[in-house]
Computed example of a mutant assay.
Amino acid sequence: MLTDNFGRQFQYLRLSITDACNFRCQYCLPNGYHAEHDRQFLSLNEIDTLITAFARLGMRKVRITGGEPGLRKDLPDIISLCRSTAGIEQIALTTNGFNLEKNIQHWADAGLTALNVSADSLDTQLFASLTGQAKLQTILRGIAKAEQSGIKNIKLNAVLLKHFNGQQLDEYLAWIKQRNLAIRFIELMEVGSNKTFFNKQHISGEVIKGKLLDQGWFAMPRAPLAGPAQEFSHPDYQGRVGLIMPYSKDFCQNCNRLRMSAMGKLHLCLFSEQGINIRPWLTAGDVKGTCEAVRQALTDKSASHSLHLHQTGATKHLAMIGG
């Protein structure tokens, strides 16, 4: 199993398959997507080499991200490839849900086991204002269809924004009261392109945590292979709440994730520098070489990010590597 110099073990890979996105979320791509390279994203064969290598290194969970991964027509093939790789137990997808209603059954049939859908507001007009897309009702129908497809682990992601959804906690809680799924509130993170927006809109997740505890929610044990969210449940609610708070103390202490960009670069942290290019080994189909490159790279992983010092590394926006 992959272990870094701080004793942290890594069993969870976040794989970006495109950095393109068709939404214009105000905290990420307010001016829309603009390609900054030749867009030669990892091919299916390169992804095969990658997943095989990481499985040999002890990875048990793969989360497919973007940009917006639903833009790739071969997404079912990528899911199926992950599902057929020995050692991979969980295949998750993070999506804005624009084509969820149409494609979720295909993804489920290919082997998808978990689904995260961005829903930064449950108000139709506010959602359109935030994302540049009037897609909320289509997305909610897609989530309902995902529940019917047999996928057991379904979450909604909402980035906390002071002047948009910051006062909508009660609406989200009402929505999950009779639904066996989760809402995850994500603290807005500062990146290279959103400093002004961040300063105006950031809300500490600790504020939401305090409200939940006051209302009788209680913390749940962290599940194996889980991401960084602190999860909460309540005896009167079928659904659960998760909080991702990257500015909280010791946030990086239990890090169990590595990230691959759609261009074949390994990122040891969401807020690291340019990433480590391991694509030559992927293109050559060299599983052993890929394993060695990853092992060597991990020796340089830092103990923590430096977001609290406003050091955001090379991350200009979260679509670059899928959060």
Rank of each mutant, 00 (worst) to 15 (best):
R259L: 12
Q105E: 14
M260C: 04
G264S: 03
W175G: 01
K152P: 01
L140F: 08
A219E: 07
F164W: 14
L2E: 14
T49V: 06
L258T: 00
V117Y: 05
G205I: 02
F218R: 04
Q9G: 03
P228I: 08
R8S: 03
I64K: 05
A314P: 08
L266Y: 13
A114K: 14
R8Y: 06
L81E: 08
V191D: 10
I203M: 02
R83T: 02
L100T: 13
A55V: 09
T299W: 04
I208C: 00
N254D: 13
L169N: 03
H163W: 15
E36D: 08
D109H: 09
R8D: 06
A144V: 12
I47L: 05
F6I: 00
G132F: 05
G285E: 09
K162Q: 11
I276A: 04
L213C: 00
F164N: 06
D48Y: 12
G216C: 01
P235S: 02
C21D: 09
A128H: 07
Y27C: 02
Q137V: 14
L44N: 08
A319C: 06
A229Q: 06
N157G: 00
Q253V: 14
G70D: 08
L309Y: 15
N157T: 03
I208V: 07
W281A: 02
D77F: 12
K195N: 10
R39I: 02
A174R: 09
L100W: 15
N96F: 06
C28Q: 04
E36G: 07
K316P: 01
M220W: 05
D77T: 10
E147T: 15
A146N: 01
D214M: 03
T290M: 07
T299D: 04
Q238N: 05
K195Q: 13
Q178L: 15
Y12K: 12
E273F: 09
K155D: 07
I78Q: 13
T290S: 03
H202V: 11
I186R: 10
L136W: 08
N165I: 11
I203V: 06
D214F: 00
V241K: 03
S129A: 10
G285C: 11
F10V: 04
K177Q: 07
